[in-house]
């Protein structure tokens, strides 16, 4: 029964859904990494975005305006990280840990302040981005079931893969981001300010991650709960690293992790203990990271001659 479920188009549909937040964050990580900064604050940014998404969409009574406002917040957190790392010269990992900590505390504080709720935003009348069915495609057997009837943000995340690819490889700014990440001094020697480029990259990274965070409470679920990013930001870090920090590579690895999440979602309904099934996405990431790193190490050793 479970095997059937995994091979079904519904499962693939679920996979895409579960991939969406990871994919946004992985793209966010890819841009930051290309510019030479590890953005481990993705986790905190997503958590903030999940909360602000709920608040803003309720305030504006428009999911789209809510998304837009959340993206602005995401950009600001990216800017803050950039300021700490580039201006104050804080270690990028410790700065991110600080942001993640602040996110943990502040989301609880803000939720309480705004709604009086603790833990879950049940009294906030927030909106979600709708699902749509794709006119012609939905009629194609199998593929229709997989692709159609998804949240619009899921489609946007897929489009973002292409957009980020074009951005990084076909635009002047993308070229400069790659140049700064690969050889900061070279970029600096021609008058590109590495700091400026990294500010931009981290702001964009924050915006993308916030879209993933928004999806968590305004698409995947319909409410904000504390700690709901649940390590997806960290999984996304692994996804982009294993995807060579390219948008396409990040997408493929995110899909793998999304599938693990989807399997976990399905199996929880079965007879297996749900706690063990919940381990699956993290276990997949851990093992996947190990295999990827091992093969990369071997490849490098081969290049070294023996």
């Amino acid at each position: 029964m479970i095997v059937d479920a995994i091979l079904s188009p519904e499962f693939l549909n679920n996979t895409l859904r579960a991939t969406t937040p990871i994919l946004f964050a992985a793209l966010a990580s890819a841009i930051a990494s290309k510019s030479g900064v590890v953005n481990m604050a993705l986790e905190g940014i997503m958590l903030f975005a999940a909360l602000f998404g709920v608040i803003f969409s309720a305030a504006f009574q428009s999911a789209w305006l809510g998304l837009l406002a959340t993206m602005v917040v995401g950009g600001f957190i990216g800017l803050f990280l950039a300021f700490a790392v580039l201006k104050l010269k804080t270690d990028e990992i410790l700065a991110a840990i600080a942001i993640n900590l602040i996110a943990n505390g502040a989301t609880i504080l803000i939720l309480l302040f705004v709604s009086g709720d603790r833990g879950i935003s049940s009294s906030i009348n927030s909106l979600t981005i709708p699902m749509v069915s794709l006119p012609v495609i939905e009629n194609i057997p199998f593929i229709g079931t997989v692709l159609s009837n998804q949240n619009i943000l899921t489609y946007i995340s897929l489009i973002m893969v292409v957009v980020v690819h074009i951005f990084l490889y076909k635009t002047p700014l993308g070229l400069q981001i790659r140049a700064v990440g690969e050889n900061k001094d070279a970029a600096e020697s021609v008058g590109i300010s590495p700091d400026r480029i990294r500010y931009i990259s981290l702001i964009l990274s924050g915006v993308l991650a916030s879209m993933g965070g928004f999806f968590l409470s305004g698409g995947y679920m319909t409410r904000f709960t504390t700690g709901m990013s649940a390590g997806r930001g960290f999984i996304a870090l692994a996804a982009s690293a294993m995807g060579g920090n390219t948008p396409i590579g990040s997408f493929l690895v995110s899909l793998l992790f999304g599938a693990a999440q989807a399997i976990s979602n399905i199996l929880q309904l079965g007879t297996l203990p749900h706690e063990l099934v919940q381990m699956l996405p993290y276990l997949t990431t851990l093992i996947g990271l190990g295999i990827y790193s091992y093969s990369r190490m071997k490849k490098r050793q081969r290049l070294m001659g023996r």
Partner: peptide, 12 residues
């Protein structure tokens, strides 16, 4: 300025 250590991006 042409630096002693080249300021070039190798993959470009």
């Amino acid at each position: 300025m042409v630096h002693q250590h080249f300021m070039l991006v190798p993959s470009l």
